[in-house]
Amino acid sequence: MPSTTPAPCAPDDVRRIACIGAGVIGGGWAAHFLARGYDVTAWDPAPDAEPKLRRLVAAAWPALERIGLAAGASPDRLTVAPTLAEAVADADFVQESAPEKLELKRSLLARLAAATRPGVVIASSTSGYPMTDMQTEAAGPDDAGRLVVGHPFNPPYLIPLVEVVGGERTDRAAVEWAARFYDLAGKSVITMDRELPGFIANRLQEALWREALHMVAAGEATVEDIDASITEGPGLRWAFMGPCLTFALAGGEGGMAHMLDHFGPSLKSPWTRLAAPELDPALRDAMVDGCAAAAGGRTYADLVAERDQGVIDVLRATGRLGGPR
């Protein structure tokens, strides 16, 4: 779709970002943008949203300091607005991170488009809804045209990837603007040419997750076995080389062609079950109990700190740790 309303500023001129929704994802976005030197205004309807958000930013800040902060970056540049309208009044970009409920996303995105200055791009952190399904209540073409998906990974302040894609009513210029902005904001951007429920990475994660649930449900492996099979095996390769290139190396000098010719017949082997198993109480309890055992007495805060340091170490070791903008 051709652009009908120009953005009020270029991606490299963005100064203030509105983070709508201040939970784990929205708060993680706020921490990331603050660390990149932006002013951030947040809004969340929960009565205790502000103290929770400030605690999240404070907990993330040591990791962000180890990565390296942009000039002028400070948690003090965070403002929590009392209303949605005040949160977006001066925003150059809006990141929506409300709960994953379709009707809520539809109404909220319509409200944001009505309250935000004309042309300001509004991105949703949805984990899987196509923008076409979420932009149905936007009043006019100019409103719907600036709604895009900007799907991050948790925690957004450390995991580089963001998947960007528009809906049927989205201006292509808005998608390109968002992709350029995220790149300047220190993210690793995949700009998708077409919508796909769950996008790319979540569909791959979901396939692995469903097979893990099947193995636990059938008593074929424990939670600890499954996690170790990734962290001590292919996960070490996936941290710097994706599954396709990893498989290509399995073909030796013949590359992917030899790998497919040699291992192609195994695709018909019963190595995976992509249909989701029934998440009955027994399977749920097995997963919960298994994760508790794997935690080994470590608290949530302990695990978050360990994860954050681990991601930093992997990024640094593989030369992909971005510096301040």
Rank of each mutant, 00 (worst) to 15 (best):
Thr318Lys: 07
Val57Ile: 15
Leu78Cys: 07
Asp193His: 14
Ala257Met: 10
Arg284Met: 12
Glu163Cys: 12
Arg203Leu: 01
Gly252Gln: 06
Arg55Pro: 00
Ser229Ile: 02
Asp12Cys: 04
Ala301Gln: 14
Arg66Glu: 14
Ser229Gly: 10
Met287Gly: 02
Pro243Met: 03
Glu195Tyr: 04
Glu100Phe: 02
Gly255His: 04
Thr272Lys: 08
Pro11Val: 15
Glu253Pro: 11
Asp227Ser: 05
Thr83Pro: 13
Val24Gln: 05
Thr299Ser: 14
Asp225Gln: 08
Arg111Met: 09
Pro47His: 02
Arg320Leu: 09
Pro62Cys: 09
Glu232Gln: 06
Gly310Ile: 13
Val80Arg: 08
Pro62Met: 09
Pro152Gly: 05
His151Thr: 15
Val189His: 01
Arg180Gln: 10
Gly242Phe: 02
Leu321Ala: 06
Val165Lys: 09
Ala221Gly: 10
Thr191Ser: 11
Arg203Phe: 00
Arg180Ile: 15
Ile20Gln: 04
Ala248Gly: 06
Val40Tyr: 00
Gln135Phe: 01
Val189Gly: 07
Pro11Trp: 01
Ala174Thr: 12
Met287Leu: 14
Glu195Asp: 13
Thr5Val: 15
Gly186Ala: 03
Trp271Glu: 13
Arg117Asn: 08
Ala292Pro: 07
Ala179Trp: 03
Pro118Thr: 11
Gly72Gln: 06
Ala295Thr: 13
Arg316Asn: 08
Gly322Phe: 01
Gln135Leu: 12
Ala42Leu: 11
Glu163His: 10
Met256Gln: 08
Asp13Phe: 01
Arg325Ser: 07
Gly166Ile: 14
Ala49Val: 14
Ile17Phe: 01
Thr41Asn: 05
Val288Cys: 05
Gly166Leu: 09
Asp302Arg: 10
His32Val: 06
Thr41Gly: 09
Glu163Gln: 12
Glu176Gln: 11
Ala73Ile: 05
Pro2Cys: 04
Pro197Lys: 10
Glu253Thr: 14
Phe153His: 11
Ser266Asn: 10
Ala305Met: 11
Thr299His: 05
Glu224Phe: 01
Asp225Cys: 08
Val148Lys: 12
Arg77Leu: 06
